[in-house]
Amino acid sequence: MEEKEVLLDVRNLSKTYRVGSVDIHALRGVTLQIQKGESVCIIGRSGSGKSTLLNLLAGLERVSGGEIVIAGKRLDRMSEGELIRFRQRHVGFVFQSFNLMPYYTALENVAFPLAFRGMARRERNRDAKHILQEVGLETHLRHKPAQMSGGQQQRVGIARALVTNPELVFADEPTGNLDFATGDEVMRTICDICKAAGRTLIMVTHDAHIASFADRVITLLDGRVVEDSSNPLEEK
């Protein structure tokens, strides 16, 4: 067993939205640590705060209280420009609704984040082609999203999230727009690749079955962690 290294350290994290004159407490003091290489699933009902937690961890929203330390850096103190640079270097993101650029081919979509890093076209395409092979789409390089099934599109989405070699991969309901069988396949793909490369995967879902793919499940309820285990659902 390799030595455990804390990649993500969250302390007393809170998030409050103000809607009109009413404060809505989405997170009420979440504390958790995630090791490098772990695959974690955050599960909870609608309104439990799981999506908010993911957004905060990915630096898409500002925290109201508490701190987030990722790879030794205080995420909650970064400016938006720094957050973007941080995501560029360390984070991959898989969306529920795929969010592929409809006018780009699969290859171009996957190569797109590399362009933001100023990589040359030839190297971009080489890396993108390689990762598309890993997700099993080497035959669909020139297809546009509209010419692919939902499962294939999400594979492109996964390839796009992984092409930059991120230490941390976030997935927001990655199977939410897919049917049961396809969802399973996609989950297997993403978990396998992340595990093989030693990447940390943090998913959000409300689906207990999907959660069974993860090493660890964190259950949220009303903005608090109510259960944190090494996958008790699998043991049942």
């Binding site: 973007i84 640079r85 650029m101 984040p113």
Partner: peptide, 16 residues
């Protein structure tokens, strides 16, 4: 709007 959000998540810098 959405597309701009996506490229920001994917790491496109503000200046870009």
């Amino acid at each position: 709007t959405r597309e701009i959000g996506i490229i920001k998540v994917l790491g496109c810098r503000m200046g870009n």
